[in-house]
Design a protein around this nucleic acid. Structure first.
Lengths: 125, 125, 125, 125
DNA sequence: GTGGTCTAGACCACG
DNA sequence: GTGGTCTAGACCACT
C-alpha cells in the first residue's frame, strides 16, 4: 500500500495518514482481516513520529475501520461500518464549502457532478 | 446576511467565517460590488476579535472574492474569479477523502451523486 | 495628463498621485512653468478627497517639483532639481529588493538591464 | 545571516524582514533546504514580536521562497520559483516611479543603468 | 472611521 | 518546542 504524505500540507500528518489508509481499504490494497504495519514499523517507513501513527490508528479505530488485536496489532475490520446519519451530515458539511466556492467560480451542476463521478469511479483503482 | 459560526467547532473561526461569506455570495445575499461590514463592525456583531475577521477578509482577498478599496473597505468583486486547474485540484483533494470514506461505508455512486446534487441545488436558496 | 489611480492598490492614493504627476512631468505632458489643476478640481475629477490631493501636492513641493503660487496655484518648477546623493541612496534602497527577488528567481543581469532600459526609454513617451 | 532592520523606517518591519531574508537567500547566506530560525527564536533575536516574524514568513511562503514543514519549521525552498509575467510586472511597476523621478532630475540612461548594474553585482556578495 | 501594524500574552494541536 | 489561533489593546496612516 502506497501512503502518500505531504509534509508541507496544512492538513495534520495523522489526518493525511488516516485518509490514506481509508483510501487503501477502498482500493482493496489491504483486505478485510489483514493487519496494518506495526506503529513502530510504519513510523520508521514514513519517517514520522510514532505518536503520529498511533493517533491515526486510534482515529481509525474510533471510526470503526480497524480493531486492535493483541497478537496481530491493528486489523482491518470493515464488517460493522455503515453510512449513518452522522457520517452523512459530516460529509455534507465537509463538501458544501467546496461546492459553494465552485458555484461562485461559475462551475455548473453538471460539471461538478461529472468531476464527483470521476473521483468516485477512480477510487477502486 | 446570516453568518453562522460554531464556536465549539475545531474548524478555525476565520475559516468558518470565510466559508459563510462565500456562501452568502453564492446565495446572492450580498451582491457583486457591495461592501462587507468593516472588520470592527463585523467583529463586534459576531462577538469575536477584529483580527480574526481581518484574517478571513484577507483570505477572501487572496482567493479573489473581494477587493480592499481604500475608500469603501472590503468590496465583493467576483468579476475575475474562475474555476481554474488549481481550484479544481484543491476541490478534488478536499472531497476525495469524504468519498473514500463513504465508499468504504457502502454508499453507492448514485446515492453519493444524489446527495451532491441536493447540496448544489440548495446553495442558491 | 492622464492620471492612473488604482484604488485597490496597497500603495496610498496620495503616493500614486504624486508618482503619476512626476510621470506626467517626465513625459512632458505638463511643461515647466505650467499650473497643475486646483486641489479641489483634481479631487473632483479623480473622485478622491481634497486632503489626499493636498498631501500629494505638498510632497511634490517638498521634493522640489512644484512651487505654490498665490495666483496660479501649484506650478511645475523643475529648474532647481538635481539627482543628489540622498536621492540616489533612496532609489538604490528602493529598487534593491526588487533586484534581489529577481536574482533569486533566476533573472540574469542582462535580462534585468534590458527591462530597466526599456522602462527608461518608455518614460518620455 | 545578518538581518538589518531599521525601526525608524516607515517601511513595515515584516516587509523589511522579508526583504532581508530574500537578500540572505540571494547571497547564499542561507542555502536551499536549510531551515530558518523558529518564529519565536528570530523574534527574540531581533527584539520584535513573534507575530511580526510570522507575517514575514507567511509572505515568503506565499511568494514561494519557503515552505512550512511540520517537522522542520520554515525551510528555504527555491526550487520552484521563477520570474513569471506577474513578477516582472510587479517589478516594473515598482521601479518605474524611481526611474521617472531620476529622469526628471536629469539622470541619463547610462548613469541609471550603471547604478542598476552595480546593485545587481553587489547582491551575491 | 477605515484598515494596517505592532505588541503582549494565552491556549492548543502537532510532532 | 513548533506554528496556528485567538484575544485585547494600542497607535498610525489614510481618506
Amino acid at each position: 500500500m502506497l501512503l502518500n504524505i505531504n509534509f508541507e500540507s496544512d492538513i495534520p500528518i495523522y489526518i493525511q495518514l488516516k485518509n490514506e489508509i481509508i483510501m487503501g481499504i477502498a482500493k482493496k490494497q489491504i483486505e478485510n482481516g489483514e493487519s496494518l504495519p506495526s506503529v513502530r514499523q510504519l513510523a520508521e517507513d514514513i519517517g514520522i513520529n510514532m505518536h503520529t501513527v498511533n493517533k491515526a490508528y486510534n482515529m481509525l479505530k474510533a471510526e470503526g475501520f480497524i480493531s486492535m488485536d493483541r497478537r496481530k496489532g491493528a486489523v482491518v475490520n470493515t464488517s460493522g461500518i455503515i453510512m449513518d446519519e452522522k457520517c452523512i451530515q459530516e460529509m455534507v458539511d465537509g463538501i458544501r464549502p467546496y461546492m459553494a466556492e465552485a458555484y461562485c467560480r461559475g462551475m455548473t451542476k453538471e460539471e461538478f457532478l461529472k468531476i464527483a463521478e470521476e473521483i468516485y469511479e477512480d477510487i477502486p483503482k
